[in-house]
C-alpha cells in the first residue's frame, strides 16, 4: 500500500542550455543529489569492498605487502649507500613504511574516481542516479583501505617503539586533506578518463614520477633545484604534516599546509560542478 502514499511528483526539465546560467537551481540540485546519494554510496561501497578480496588468495594482505616491500628495498639500498636518503626523525624502515602507506592512500584517492567512473560506464549510460554516489563510494573505500593499513602502522609504531605526542589526534585532519586532495585530482580527470584511455595510462606514469618528488623514501631536502621542486609539490605539505602530527608533533610547514588545504576544498567544489556538467556529454559519446 506504500505505493499510494502521497508523493509529490518531482519535475525535471531537460534543455540544451548550460545549467551554469541558473546557479540557484544548480546549487539546490547539487545539495539534494548529495543528500540522495548517501545511501547509494554506502551500498556501492559495501558492494565494492566485499568484491575486492573475494577473488584473491592473499586478500587483505595486499594492503600490507607494498609498504613492506618498499621499506625492505630502500633500507637495503640505503645501507649499501646506493642512495642518499638524508636524516629521518624516526627509524628509516618505519619512516618508509608509514610514508608509503600514506602515499598509497593518496594514489588510491587519485585513481579511485577515474577507475570507478570508467567501470560504472554501462551503469551511467543506462540509469540516471546521483553521480556523486560513485565518487563518495570510492572515497569511503579509500578510508576503509587506510583503516586496514592502520593495523600495519600501529604495528610499526610498537615494533620500533616510536614515541607519540598528543598531536596524533590531529593527524586524521591532515590525512583527510590528503585524501580530499587526491579525490579532487581524480574527479577532475575522471570524465576525460572515460573518453580517452590516455588518462588512465598517463596517470599510472604520472603517479610513478610524482612519488620521486614527494618525501616518501627520503626526508625533505633543504636546498637545490630538487629541493625547490619537492617544496612546490602540493602533496609534500599534506603528507609531511600528517606524518609529523603522528610522530614528532612539530609541524614544519603549517603555512603551506593551510594554503594547499584551502585550495583543495575550493578546487573540489569547482570540480564537483564541472563533473556534473561534463558527465552528460561523456555519456553521449560512449555507447550504452
Amino acid at each position: 500500500m506504500t505505493k499510494f502514499a502521497p508523493r509529490p511528483l518531482a519535475q525535471n526539465i531537460y534543455t540544451p542550455e548550460s545549467i551554469l546560467r541558473h546557479p540557484k537551481r544548480l546549487f539546490t540540485r547539487m545539495w539534494y543529489d548529495l543528500l540522495a546519494s548517501r545511501e547509494l554510496a554506502w551500498r556501492l561501497m559495501v558492494r565494492d569492498i566485499s568484491a575486492q578480496y573475494r577473488q584473491s588468495v592473499l586478500g587483505v594482505a595486499w594492503a600490507f605487502i607494498p609498504p613492506l616491500v618498499m621499506a625492505a628495498g630502500f633500507t637495503l639500498a640505503g645501507e649499501a649507500q646506493v642512495i642518499n636518503i638524508g636524516r629521518t626523525d624516526i627509524p628509516y624502515p618505519a619512516y618508509v613504511m608509514f610514508s608509503t602507506a600514506l602515499w598509497q592512500t593518496f594514489v588510491d584517492a587519485v585513481n579511485g574516481p577515474v577507475t570507478a567512473v570508467t567501470k560504472a560506464k554501462p551503469m551511467l549510460a543506462r540509469v540516471n542516479f546521483p553521480r556523486e554516489a560513485i565518487i563518495l563510494a570510492k572515497v569511503g573505500e579509500v578510508f576503509f583501505n587506510f583503516a586496514i593499513k592502520l593495523i600495519l602502522i600501529i604495528g610499526i609504531f610498537i615494533w620500533y617503539r616510536i614515541a607519540i605526542t598528543w598531536t596524533i589526534i590531529l593527524a586524521p585532519v591532515a590525512l583527510i586533506h590528503l585524501i580530499v586532495f587526491g579525490t579532487f585530482i581524480g574527479t577532475l580527470l575522471s570524465p576525460l578518463g572515460v573518453l580517452y584511455d590516455d588518462v588512465a595510462r598517463g596517470l599510472t606514469m604520472a603517479t610513478g614520477f610524482w612519488l620521486f618528488l614527494t618525501p616518501v623514501v627520503y626526508s625533505v631536502p633543504e636546498s637545490g633545484l630538487f629541493g625547490a621542486l619537492v617544496q612546490l609539490n602540493p602533496v609534500t605539505p599534506l603528507l609531511v604534516t600528517t606524518r609529523e602530527l603522528a610522530t614528532t608533533g612539530i609541524v614544519s610547514e603549517p603555512v603551506s599546509f593551510w594554503i594547499v588545504s584551502l585550495l583543495t576544498w575550493i578546487g573540489l567544489f569547482l570540480t564537483w560542478i564541472a563533473f556534473r556538467i561534463a558527465i552528460p556529454y561523456v555519456i553521449e559519446r560512449v555507447s550504452s
Binding site: 531537460y14 534543455t15 540544451p16 555519456i283
Partner: peptide, 13 residues
C-alpha cells in the same frame, strides 16, 4: 536525463 537534447525541451514529472 542521461544526455542533453540539442534543441527543444523535455519535461518529466
Amino acid at each position: 536525463g542521461l544526455i542533453k537534447p540539442d534543441t527543444g525541451s523535455v519535461k518529466v514529472r
